[in-house]
Computed example of a mutant assay.
Amino acid sequence: MFKGKIISHPVPPYSVAWSSSSIVVAGSDKRVVMYTKMGKIHQQFDYSRDASEREFSSIVTSPSGQALIVGSYNRIRIFDFNTSRGMWEERGTREFDGIYTITSLAWKRDGSRLVCGTLCGAVEMFDSVLRRSVWKNKWEMTYVGPSQVLVKPLAGSGPFGSRGVILRSQYGFEIHDVRIMGKDRYLVARTNETLLLGDLHRNLLSEVHWAVEPGTEKFYFDNENVCMIFSAGELSLVEYGNNDLLGSVR
């Protein structure tokens, strides 16, 4: 926990947010500045020469900390954090005629909705989704960020009463290849460096480091507490809800 002054910003900081990697500050100088947690400038985006831009009035980070929205006059700017480069990248802008200054921003806990409050008292709500896919006409996968996926049954509740889970990589890695297995009770997903497993019935999720080539494993879900993974003559055990391998044997 820091105490005392961390950052000296050159203009009044109208809006401040803390992401997974930076302290982000914006204000009347039309700059978005990313500071390190030690108060050093890591990156900045300067729009002072853009005559159509006005002062930045609000900021919000996504629940995963890997996306950032900055609000101004009739406009929001969207930024994503590139984990492989360790840098923020601007993903574009959205214009909204007639809403005037965006005074507040909030993100739904699961990352699927963005809410804007305006100077004139209006409240606008927007979808915040990268893409959607459907698994075997039973489950909907909603990618709300590179490292976060909402998994929910299309019928409202799954066969074990599950209403879905928020699947998130604790390391910020991009999630791909999400599958529902074991009689629609267990979840298996991958990043480039980890394996994510989950019990949808009890809402228990695990993420373990995994260097095995995809497609070479066999998953066994006979035990409701442990997933057994067999690959290349080695048996690995992962307890649902635990982010470390329980053990492995050859």
Rank of each mutant, 00 (worst) to 15 (best):
D80Y: 12
D80C: 03
F81V: 05
F81I: 01
F81A: 02
F81S: 03
T83V: 08
S84C: 03
R85F: 00
R85A: 11
G86P: 07
G86W: 07
W88E: 03
W88G: 01
W88H: 00
W88L: 06
E89M: 05
E89V: 07
E89Q: 13
E90W: 00
R91M: 15
R91A: 10
R91K: 15
G92I: 05
G92M: 10
T93F: 06
T93P: 00
R94I: 07
R94V: 04
R94S: 08
E95Q: 09
F96K: 03
F96N: 00
I99D: 01
I99Y: 02
Y100F: 06
Y100Q: 07
Y100L: 12
T101L: 07
I102R: 08
T103N: 14
T103D: 09
S104L: 02
L105M: 15
L105A: 13
A106P: 00
A106Q: 12
K108I: 00
K108H: 15
R109H: 06
D110S: 04
D110Q: 09
D110A: 01
G111L: 12
G111P: 05
S112P: 06
S112K: 09
R113S: 10
R113T: 05
L114Q: 07
L114P: 11
L114T: 04
V115E: 05
C116S: 14
C116F: 14
C116H: 01
G117L: 13
L119H: 12
L119E: 09
L119G: 06
C120S: 14
C120Y: 04
C120G: 01
C120Q: 14
A122P: 00
A122Q: 15
A122R: 15
V123S: 05
V123I: 14
E124N: 13
E124S: 13
M125G: 00
M125V: 14
F126N: 10
F126A: 08
D127K: 12
S128M: 13
S128A: 13
S128E: 11
V129K: 14
V129I: 15
V129A: 00
L130A: 09
R131T: 06
R132Q: 09
R132T: 12
R132D: 05
S133L: 06
V134W: 04
